[in-house]
Amino acid sequence: MMDHSATWFNLPTLMVRSLMGGLFWWILSEGDPSSWVIGLPSVLICSLISLRVYPPSPYRINPIGLLRFAGYFMYASLIAGIDIARRTLDRRLPVCSCMTDFTTQLTGLPLWLFMITMSLLPGTLSVRTTQNGLKIHCLDTPENIQPELIRLENYIARVFSLEPLPH
């Protein structure tokens, strides 16, 4: 029994998850100190269960990479909204509906983040995963889209401290 518990119990991960959970509770309760009577036990129990169900993630998050990604994302989603406004308000409706493929080495959580953020960036929408990459719908010609996607891919690789990806 002790041996079994030793395989999933991991104190540093538990502490990180409890801190995240505590932050989440603090935000949800709008900083009300009396709510910790319920909050503290809930956070601890949830962190323990999450550790039992999900083992520590193999990814190393790079804080600087994460900040740079967040900055790029904010800027690019502002551009995306302006781009949509420009296309919608133009009387000629300059939209080109087409599909393109994008090969990527990303898998798992980084791939998921890539697909989700891509749908909020200018002119791209992830449709499905294919054998060696993604099928993407774009609002513009595919040639204009590719360099933007490679840029986003590199930002995400840096968030998860991955090696620069070949293309």
């Binding site: 989603s77 502002l78 995306a80 909204g81 302006i82 781009d83 949509i84 406004a85 296309r87 919608t88 308000l89 409706l93 939209v95 509906s97 749908s119 909020l120 200018p122 002119g123 929408l125 449709v127 719908h137 609002l139």
Partner: peptide
């Protein structure tokens, strides 16, 4: 603008573009 895009854009895929991006920024 997102709703206008939902009305004006020609097919299902382009309408998804208009809605997600404009609503997110709005």
């Amino acid at each position: 603008i997102g709703s206008l895009g939902l009305i004006r854009f020609p097919d299902t895929y382009t309408r998804i573009h208009a809605l997600t991006k404009a609503d997110n920024l709005g």
